[in-house]
Design a protein around this nucleic acid. Structure first.
Lengths: 326, 326
DNA sequence: GTGAAAGCGCTAACAT
DNA sequence: ATGTTAGCGCTTTCAC
């Protein structure tokens, strides 16, 4: 690799390195002619300044960290596409960190990201994170940080979320309109705010329709298909159940699989509805009424907030308000 | 952010920065006691060396670029998981670049990656790349580069691929065994080697079964669902078609959609089979016989080859052979 | 308008 | 075994 430096340019053009540096950053205090000559030459040799040197010297890095539970997931990969579409335009690059739903990994990856001197972090917290000190520290230190989708209870930093409550409410209503009476809910632990909100929207809708919810109809599963299986088996002992609301992408698919495998005949008669961002979920039979989250848009707004704060000189002008995407 | 440096450690412990530096890199020529003291202290203050400084000074960066057409794709995101699993273990981080199937973007992103001084690049080339100079230059410059899945015709650098020919052959055989006689093939342009191989495997199987292939039954579509629709409509004018082989993930789903929308009655009678890495494709009806590529494993092998070459002192010992995954 | 020089945080000769 | 020093590529005072 040609590892050209401004020194090479300076030598070739018979000027000093500082002149080159200034010309390249389009400083006003420089002879337009020299400037032009330098810029032209730099372009001709495909010069790219060494970002290590730039960021060692200055402050910024033009890179942001994205911390997600996993990449291999239709929702998160679409969010990242949204983030990238904004970041790319502004010349930022993404470094990806995965936590695999582990709290320890999350703490470690944040350390790594900071260590790598990223300019900011966009994070969707892991499913097992219930202590937020590592994140609160960042906020206290005024480090540019934006939460998306899975957000903790922290103030003073933007949290970009989807209006889960309303989405859950609306699709529950549709199912009730179709005549469902006895609706079960299978979901992941209610630690995560967005998951909790879906449950709340569901409950609110039942209430508004004067249906009361038997707490036996709520099943909480961790990230293991086995648990979904047990939950379904347990629930279906109740013959009256005519609908199942699933609270997350994975659970939606897991439950569908269990029904198909163990209770094909009952699956025909049970409405399943829930959250999923799988882009071929509309092709499966029997159909599931699916709530698709606006993932790309979530990514766009997340990036906008983060980049605003990164590039904002004064901390007072930082965006700190929560944003809800519909 | 506390931006601690070795200087801080040196001052706190009353030693010189070089002693600290050496202790932290576990140099043998240092007093075990001082070493211990320094390491302990560094740990206690959560010290992470500034990677910018490290890589400015030395050579390596502990980061690799992943260049893919798009992230939001079950196959690529799973490959990246595989790459990350190996890279993470060795302390490398991934910076992701997307080309969105554009040749220009690919050239630009490679420049960016080099500019960022990544230690190596793993790339799956864009669907519209038919000039390989930008890649050949990297190989000539002995820059660590590994191709995966979508590989160009270049020598002297590893190409990690899936044995598409065999996979295509095997599933074609299964369909023939079920009685199919008139099998159409819908695929993306045959520029990409892996796509071409699938076609070849398909043809070979037909030949081995003494079925001859009418070239009218081959339809090539670009990355637009419209084209898939036209292809299907055109093909189904032929009543004898009893099976359709789809050559890529996207095409598989697009074709299924068109059939479902426009020809539901014929869909029942036509075997569809093809490549897809969608993890819920087994749930759709009528079922598609699906070839799932070992994406994670592909990622693992890609990372192993790349990291080997990055960390290898002598260029002679570089891995350069192609690897085929089954 | 341009150059000389210092320094960002770190490592690796080169001393001692 | 440890300290001193130079320098990686760049930006930015401070001179002129």
């Amino acid at each position: 690799m040609q590892t050209l430096t401004i020194k090479d340019i300076a030598k070739a053009l018979g000027v000093s390195t500082s002149t080159v540096s200034r010309a390249l950053r389009d400083s006003h205090e420089i002879n337009p002619l020299t400037k032009l000559k330098i810029i032209e030459y730099a372009k001709s040799i495909h010069f790219i300044p060494n970002p290590m040197a730039v960021s060692l010297r200055g402050k910024i890095n033009k890179s942001i960290a994205i911390i997600v539970p996993t990449l291999h997931n239709s929702f998160f990969s679409e969010v990242i596409e949204g983030i990238d579409s904004v970041a790319h335009e502004k010349g930022y690059h993404l470094t990806i960190f995965q936590t695999h739903e582990s709290f320890e990994r999350e703490v470690e990856e944040i350390h790594q990201a900071i260590g790598r001197r990223v300019d900011g972090i966009a994070i969707s917290i892991s499913g097992s994170t219930n202590n937020f000190d590592h994140l609160a520290n960042l906020v206290d230190a005024k480090f540019p940080l934006v939460f998306f989708d899975r957000v903790p209870d922290l103030t003073d930093t933007p949290k970009i979320t989807i209006d889960n409550l309303t989405l859950a409410y609306e699709c529950t209503q549709k199912i009730i309109d179709k005549g469902a009476k006895k609706i079960a809910h299978i979901t992941t632990p209610l630690i995560l705010k967005n998951i909790k909100e879906r449950f709340d929207g569901f409950l609110k809708c039942l209430k508004d329709n004067s249906i009361d919810f038997d707490s036996n109809l709520l099943k909480v599963c961790h990230f293991d298909p086995k648990e979904a299986e047990e939950a379904v088996i347990e629930l279906l002992k109740n013959d009256e159940i005519d609908a199942i609301f699933t609270g997350s992408d994975r659970i939606t698919v897991d439950v569908f699989r269990v029904l198909k495998k163990l209770f094909p005949e009952r699956q025909e008669k049970i409405f399943q509805f829930g959250f999923s961002n799988h882009n071929i979920v509309d092709l499966i039979t029997p159909p599931i009424l699916v709530v698709k989250q606006p993932a790309f848009q979530l990514g766009v707004v997340t990036a906008q907030n983060l980049l605003h704060n990164i590039e904002c000189k004064s901390h007072n002008a930082w965006k700190k308000e929560d944003v809800r995407i519909r």
